[in-house]
Amino acid sequence: MDSLIEWAVSIFVIIGGVFALVGSIGLARLPDFYTRLHGPTKATTLGVGGAILGSLIYFSWQEHALQLHEVLITLFLFITAPVSAHMLAKAAMHRDLKRMKETRGEPWKQ
């Protein structure tokens, strides 16, 4: 296998893994629900994005043709992640979850 391709795939999957881990560390470590919401909704999306880019390069090289179908997963996650985050934030506000005492501003109750 071309070492250049091998390097590219390796770098992308490891970057993806690092971002996913940081997002999950955020989920485990941050003090209240609203701050926890930030970790997974993005870091994980970029984490999966890295893994998918690696897979895209690997299979395109292996098949000697551009394999774009993996992009659909990333695209789908980029569309859906904000929606789930929004729904979860609304659920949390509805339940009036406690927030960090440093938090400024007030959540709404609709």
């Binding site: 993806g16 893994g17 996913a20 989920l27 984490g47 893994a51 998918i52 979860l88």
Partner: peptide, 16 residues
């Protein structure tokens, strides 16, 4: 909601 968020993150990590 914390648990739902954890499940949400879990499935995304599983995809990867």
């Amino acid at each position: 909601p914390d648990r739902v968020l954890a499940l949400d993150t879990m499935y995304i990590n599983s995809i990867a």
